[in-house]
Design a protein around this nucleic acid. Structure first.
Lengths: 191, 191
DNA sequence: CTGATTTCTTTACCTATGTAAATGCTTCAC
DNA sequence: GTGAAGCATTTACATAGGTAAAGAAATCAG
């Protein structure tokens, strides 16, 4: 769990006494390819730190249309963040796209430490802030860039990923159909 | 500045000693219709609380295409949030769409209080978290809903706004052209 | 009130992307 | 290695939405 400690510390240094309280809350977990970390409709309760593997977060509407909101690679937090924060039922499914190793903690226990460990709450604040900035950029990309450009951005942002996951997952992340992604790939290959 | 105090407190209660430190950082400001609160390219330094009026946050790319990311109505924070957080130059312009009354503070002075006032940092955390949830929902809407549905959502979310601002601002918020919005309005009127 | 300016709508045409179905191509279990 | 299942590509057609320009309506300055 060195990776987790490093991740925390680069956001904002944690006192060792805080880390001593945080550490025991996390237990090692394994997810097999295809398994879900969190389901739609339930209240989120746990937070995970992805040490290795690939996961996706996706939304599925009533008609069964899926949209891949995000891919997680190593050194990312997973969990129904919005549900944890708002206490509303979770609407985002998270699934392992490969075998995954995670450290998992109960979010209530973790956030209960905010009262006595302001340095931990600071980390939480920074995470929320950075997540927001991330989303803001993505929003602009979605609105202002066409799918060709978003595809190129995806390739830059997740260089390794394209080889490891299915095309239709990438298409869903880009907000288009596999058909359209195939057309785009053809066009780019011809240049 | 009662509204500001109320706003803080409903996110997470502030100690009165904290409020005593926060309050003097804010000074009253007026923006005329059309004035900018923050420009593209500069480092954000101030944060404002919109007491009355309407503002918009928009992105403008190299070709001059604008995208209205957000409308602010009374009781909202304005300011180059991403720039304040990351220290990178601001890319989002914020402009008054009507005469506006704001309370404005220097963000560095405000965030410097986090060290001594954990209750203030908690408010900051909650704001960041809620902003994130907001963006997450908007992302899903943009990808999965067509413009007709997004328009109806806009009308529900900002009931008063449609009368007060130009159609092309709404179109830009929806990520479409005024032409398309006009078509949608025509279609909806015929039902 | 009147002319000028801005905004909204309409039209004609074009492009990106969706849908559905057929065809290949991989991969994986056995 | 072989067959089945899943995946990617292609094709034909349909639709949402863009662009440009013109016309209609609303707003504003004097």
């Amino acid at each position: 769990m060195d990776k987790l400690e490093k991740y925390f510390n680069q956001l904002s240094p944690l006192k060792s006494t805080t880390w001593d309280k945080v550490k025991p809350l996390f237990t090692k977990t394994h997810l097999q390819k295809g398994e879900h970390f969190i389901e739609q409709g339930q209240l989120a309760s746990k937070i995970g730190f992805l040490e290795s593997g690939i996961m996706r977060a996706f939304y599925r509407n009533d008609e069964g249309t899926e949209y891949n909101k995000h891919f997680f690679i190593e050194n990312s937090f997973v969990g129904g963040y919005a549900s944890l924060i708002t206490g509303q039922p979770n609407i985002i499914i998270q699934q392992a796209l490969s075998d995954c190793h995670l450290w998992v903690a109960d979010f209530k226990q973790l956030s209960a430490l905010y009262d006595t460990c302001p340095d931990l709450e600071r980390v939480a604040r920074r995470i929320a802030e950075l997540y927001f900035v991330d989303k803001e950029n993505r929003e602009i990309e979605i609105i202002l860039l066409d799918a060709d450009k978003r595809y190129e951005l995806f390739q830059k942002r997740f260089p390794q990923l394209e080889q490891l996951i299915a095309q239709y997952h990438i298409a869903s992340y880009l907000g288009i159909t596999p058909t359209q992604l195939s057309r785009i790939r053809k066009k780019l290959a011809q240049r």
